[in-house]
């Protein structure tokens, strides 16, 4: 830094009063940040309260970032998993891991690519069948693999990651998956009361043995030697007669009760399709 220029108003130091005010504001600001960051892993009552006091101020400025998850702090008490190993092995329990972003990876269940898939009736096939929504379906995958630039891909990637994390919570309604699925149905003009499968799956990183196969590179993203997709969550979704999204977790399509007055698909039409769609390019 340069030395101060004497007797030059903007260059000279501010007056004592101004400095006092700025110092006070600096203290408040850094105390808020410090409380949030230093007490990141603490679960004590005092730490929770200390973190919550400046939490609102930092939330407004989008500075209340949990460096583990990369998402805003969850200010509620967070129960610790009973068995971290079982959690790792069971995708349904993934969200408790809360591992995410600034550490880039920990080699855990969340440190992989997540995708959301919605199976919708193929409009061409439906037209051929005279409006019958039975049978042939096509899969809408988010993020789309050919999306560019990378920043767009990253947003969908993050959304799918968050959907997976959120939907692993048994006690939480599938907030994001319902929103994403409903959006896809509306975007693709899928008629109301037509049940569709929606799922989150993950693609794990590969081992050196898998990568070192001849004529294979990381750019062959979906090559057959990559691990098979691992279904994290599956459910059925449809738009009711009011256009509202109805979601049922992990239930076969024919078990979803449509709202009264709606035209329910026959059991044959609504046969469950639990087999995950193959990743593109496989």
């Amino acid at each position: 830094m340069k030395a101060p220029a004497a007797n030059d108003s903007p260059a000279a130091m501010p007056s004592q009063n101004v400095r006092t005010v700025i110092n006070f504001l600096l203290f408040v600001h850094f105390f808020s940040l410090g409380a949030l960051l230093v007490l990141n892993h603490s679960s004590s009552e005092l730490a929770q309260k200390l973190r919550r006091i400046p939490g609102y101020y930092l939330q407004v400025l989008f500075m209340d970032i949990d460096f583990d998850s990369g998402q805003p702090f969850r200010h509620r008490r967070y129960p610790m998993p009973e068995d971290p190993m079982a959690e790792r092995d069971n995708p349904r329990d993934l969200p408790r891991g809360r591992r995410g972003r600034y550490h880039l990876t920990q080699g855990e269940v969340y440190d992989c690519a997540f995708f959301v898939e919605v199976e919708i009736p193929d409009p061409v096939y439906v037209q051929q069948r005279g409006g019958n929504y039975d049978g042939e379906r096509r899969v809408v995958t988010l993020p789309e693999l050919d999306i560019s630039p990378k920043q767009r891909y990253l947003r969908y990637h993050t959304l799918a990651w968050e959907a997976a994390r959120l939907n692993g919570q048994e006690d939480v309604d599938p907030i994001l998956l319902g929103g994403i699925g409903g959006g896809v149905l509306r975007e693709q003009n899928v008629p109301r009361n037509v049940p569709c499968r929606v799922r989150v799956w993950r693609m794990l990183s590969r081992t050196p043995e898998q990568v070192l196969h001849p004529n294979e590179s990381v750019r062959d993203k979906w090559n057959k030697r990559a691990p098979a997709p691992d279904i994290g969550l599956e459910g059925t979704i449809f738009l009711d007669r009011n256009g509202q999204v109805q979601f049922s977790r992990s239930l076969p399509v024919n078990e979803v009760a449509p709202p009264p007055g709606s035209v329910a698909p026959s059991a044959e039409d609504a046969a469950p399709q639990s087999t995950p769609a193959a990743p593109p390019g496989v």
Binding site: T105, G107, D111, K221
Partner: peptide, 11 residues
């Protein structure tokens, strides 16, 4: 860690 990072299938 960097191995896990560079073998992400999509990023």
């Amino acid at each position: 860690a960097m191995w896990w990072v560079i073998t992400e299938p999509d990023m």
